[in-house]
């Protein structure tokens, strides 16, 4: 089923703040096997010029994808999530995410395309801190595979 093109350009309200915990950063860094001390050692992070431990570059995806989930789940959009795969992912950082950040995400549907029966959805998530300063933008391309393939 083709997605509703009228959703292109639609921006959803900002999410409630997500508070970045230092132990959550540690858990993530350990899960990807990354022992960089900037993720776990405040003094090491400060030596690099950061006010506190920072998160690995892809950490923020958990936050932006949760926000994108609200877009994906919008029944009026008509996306079959059971057929969705992750196509592309990109981040542009103003600064790294760090412990103590309270981050909100504002999601916008940038594009909707149909290609060979696949529905392709581009979502942009703008991440801001409590002061309203930009932290990172995440672009996520989702592909809902054509249903006919497995019929």
């Amino acid at each position: 089923m083709a997605l509703d093109q009228s959703f292109v350009g639609r921006t959803y309200p900002p999410t409630a703040p997500y508070e970045v915990g230092r132990e959550k950063i540690r858990e993530f860094a350990e899960a990807v096997g990354d022992a960089n001390p900037a993720y776990t050692d405040t003094e090491a992070a400060k030596a690099l010029g950061h006010p506190d431990v920072i998160a690995p570059p892809t950490f923020v995806f958990a936050i932006t994808f949760k926000a994108a989930g609200e877009v994906i789940a919008d029944p009026k959009l008509g996306l079959d999530y059971s057929r969705v795969v992750h196509g592309d992912q990109k981040f542009a950082y103003t600064r790294p995410v760090r412990a103590g950040d309270r981050l909100t995400v504002t999601s916008t549907i940038e594009a909707i395309k149909s290609l060979a029966g696949n529905d392709i959805l581009d979502i942009r998530g703008e991440v801001h801190d409590e002061a309203g300063e930009h932290v990172v933008t995440a672009w996520t391309k989702l592909v809902a595979r054509a249903a006919a393939e497995e019929a």
Partner: peptide
């Protein structure tokens, strides 16, 4: 990249296609 650069905060953009 982050091990090479030393500071993971030096990454200003990162994108991939799966």
């Amino acid at each position: 990249v982050t091990d090479w650069a030393g500071d993971p905060g030096a990454v200003v953009e990162y994108g991939v296609r799966f």
